[in-house]
Simulated scan of single mutants.
Amino acid sequence: MTKTINDVYMQLFKRFKEAGSPQPSLEARELTAYACKVDKGRTAEWGHIYLDDATVDFANLLCDRCLDGEPLAYILNEWDFYGLTFKIDKNVLIPRSDTERLAELAIERAQKAVNPRVLDLCCGSGCIGIAVAHEVEDARVTAVDISDNAVRLSRENARANGVFSRYVALKADVRFRPQNNLGKFDVIVSNPPYVTAEEMRGLDRSVREFEPEQALYGGPDGLDFYRSICGKWGDLLVPGGLILFECGYRQATQVCAILEDNRFSGIGITEDLAGVPRIVYGENPAQEEI
């Protein structure tokens, strides 16, 4: 029997719902649109477009992969963050809505400066820095990651989202001191690897088997990158400049202590969009040279 796009959507929706998916409608809609090469925003037309058997089989094959634990975002090779669409692959973490509040705070701070310079450390897909550049028209963003593939992908995303002329991506390891010619920044923002050794062993299969370990593991206590960034990159902030971190839900007070040990001021913790206290910030207390 010939099926319409809507028939396929309903079939996938039923499969996801029976499997206990928390978002069966979203997953079915995204996979249907991807498999059938149609606009996911024009679902009203789906009942009038008929498909060949190969397309129907392909949609169900994608559903099989998703139900087997492969993240939907990696199947689609893209994901939305802060109203923008980012190309992703298994070399970078999937952008998560939990991180949108971190981007929002970086945007708010950048908007207070004239021609602000923003440094995005451990940038991955580039979602945070690109969101800042997109929302703050005079912002210039430097993004850093240890992965060649992440650097390449973030450049592609900057181009696709129209901020390439104000976005520079560099390969560097934030566990070591930065090169001398980076200059000073009004904002440093980072969502670094922060999963502990114990937590790595208990990660959900969809994370453990598909997302890059290099972007997850933050050392035995998960705090290695906070220590390095605060101790070796913090002096790249202008006097009064702000550093912003995302951290694990049990790490906020420890990250605050690292900021305090490195003589940051105005240290505080705030919640992400889900109400979890996972964003830590501090200011460079240095005074302008006279």
Rank of each mutant, 00 (worst) to 15 (best):
A73E: 14
F58G: 00
G218S: 09
G129Q: 09
R140M: 08
E271D: 09
R65D: 08
Y9A: 02
V187S: 03
V38K: 04
A28L: 09
H48I: 06
A33V: 14
P178K: 03
T55I: 14
N161V: 04
E213P: 11
I75R: 03
P95D: 03
T43I: 06
P193R: 07
T99G: 13
Q23F: 06
R177N: 02
N161C: 04
D52M: 04
A59C: 06
V56M: 05
I258H: 09
N77W: 00
N161A: 00
G20E: 13
D204H: 13
L182A: 05
I107W: 03
G202L: 06
A143H: 06
E18M: 13
Q179N: 07
N157V: 05
E198Q: 10
E78S: 13
Q11A: 12
V144D: 09
G129S: 10
T32D: 11
T142V: 15
A150T: 03
A286I: 09
K112V: 01
A143D: 05
R42A: 15
L259A: 07
D80Q: 11
G83W: 14
A33G: 15
L72T: 11
A197R: 11
T4S: 15
I188R: 01
I269R: 01
D120L: 08
N60T: 01
E211C: 09
E137Y: 13
I229Q: 07
I130D: 08
I88W: 06
L216G: 05
G162A: 02
G248I: 06
A160P: 00
K171A: 00
Y74S: 02
D89W: 07
K17Y: 10
Q287Y: 01
R201L: 11
G234A: 04
K184R: 07
T4V: 03
I279Y: 01
T85G: 04
K40Q: 14
F13T: 01
V151I: 12
T253N: 06
